[in-house]
């Protein structure tokens, strides 16, 4: 199996998913259905996780097909540029969706319904439309690389713009100064500490340690963990853009990206949706449901695994 298979496996999800998520969101707003709103916001946030390996696996696909007859380097470059811009706007959309989703995980003191702020609805709508447009262009430029029967002959402005931005990011990360990389690594470590501290303490309580603590106020630490995750996604994507060949075919890296999607989904679906209210009701001494304990334990396992997989990466380096 080639690493390139991952690209074919992953790359359709962000395109179709954004469309489905957007339709769902519009319906949920018209019908004023909170569960449906929550579902569509979760779809956007989940897609922003999935888009990271979808983007990165593109490099593996490129390595496999770049020397095939009829495959144009220009088309690949255009596709990559469009993909980069799509990824950036997808991540921003996912971030705003997560802020909206946060409202649903909080226990309202008055027992009222969670209120999704108007500015958040507006931002997610606009960004999701923009993401869908970018993803459509990316899918189109990608399809043209291997499917000459559908080549439209039109060049993509998005691809051209992204194709210019990509080398400048690469330059800043790798060549501008020898200190950019170490500083990004340092930020990656600080992000790791925020995640382990903030998300770890909530999970430990849910698992049954630190039982004197009530869960609802403890949940206030979660945004600090999310901040750490955001720092690490940004710095991690910059590492990849800087030295794609180091990561693309590294099995350790591929497993790490799988673990990242799982750990991120755990954070998203457990700590940031209305499911968490099961835990948030727990006062001092109360026991969480068995399922919640299992999810909390798997979260700790996955985040620790991410650290270990990160440290082992040079051990699994493959010669290019």
């Amino acid at each position: 199996m080639y690493s390139a298979h991952f690209h074919l496996l992953l790359n359709h999800w962000p395109i179709i998913g954004t469309f489905v998520g957007l339709c769902l969101f519009v319906v949920s707003l018209i019908a004023n259905q909170d569960d449906l709103k929550q579902t569509s916001l979760a779809v956007f946030s989940f897609l922003s996780l999935l888009s990271i390996p979808a983007y990165m696996s593109g490099n593996a696909a490129q390595q496999v097909i770049k020397d095939f007859p009829g495959v144009s380097a220009e088309m690949i470059q255009s596709h990559q540029g469009a993909a980069l811009l799509s990824l950036i706007i997808m991540e921003i959309t996912g971030g705003f969706a997560l802020i909206g989703l946060w409202q649903f995980s909080r226990v309202d003191k008055g027992g009222g319904k969670p209120i999704l702020p108007g500015w958040n609805v507006f931002a997610v709508l606009i960004l999701a439309v923009a993401t869908m447009a970018c993803m459509a262009i990316t899918g189109n430029t990608g399809g043209e690389i291997r499917h000459p029967e559908v080549v439209s002959g039109t060049s993509s402005a998005l691809g051209a713009l992204g194709g210019k931005i990509l080398p400048s990011i690469q330059y800043v990360v790798v060549d501008y100064s020898m200190w950019v990389w170490p500083i990004l690594e340092d930020l990656h470590f600080i992000g790791l500490i925020l995640i382990i501290g903030a998300i770890g303490v909530v999970n430990l309580r849910v698992m049954g340690f630190l039982k004197q603590l009530p869960v609802a106020p403890l949940h206030r630490f979660i945004p600090w963990g999310i901040a750490g995750f955001v720092i690490n996604i940004v710095s991690g994507v910059l590492f990849f853009i800087g030295m794609p060949d180091f990561y693309t075919n590294n099995i350790d890296f591929q497993i790490k990206m799988l673990a990242m999607v799982l750990a991120g989904s755990n954070l998203l679906f457990f700590h940031c949706t209305s499911y968490f209210r099961v835990c948030a009701r727990l006062g001092p001494g109360d026991e969480a449901p068995a399922l919640a304990k299992f999810v909390a334990a798997s979260s700790i396992f996955l985040w620790i695994a991410l650290i270990v997989l990160g440290r082992y990466m040079p051990f699994f380096e493959v010669a290019n």
Partner: peptide, 30 residues
């Protein structure tokens, strides 16, 4: 690296609480 995450992560939680994050959380059990 894992030890760093645990040591500094646990310190971070105590420090943030002392600085007013999660102010409704009882401090002593930390």
């Amino acid at each position: 690296a894992v030890g760093m995450g645990l040591l500094v992560g646990a310190s971070l939680v105590i420090d943030l609480r002392l600085l007013g994050v999660a102010a409704a959380l009882p401090l002593a059990p930390l």
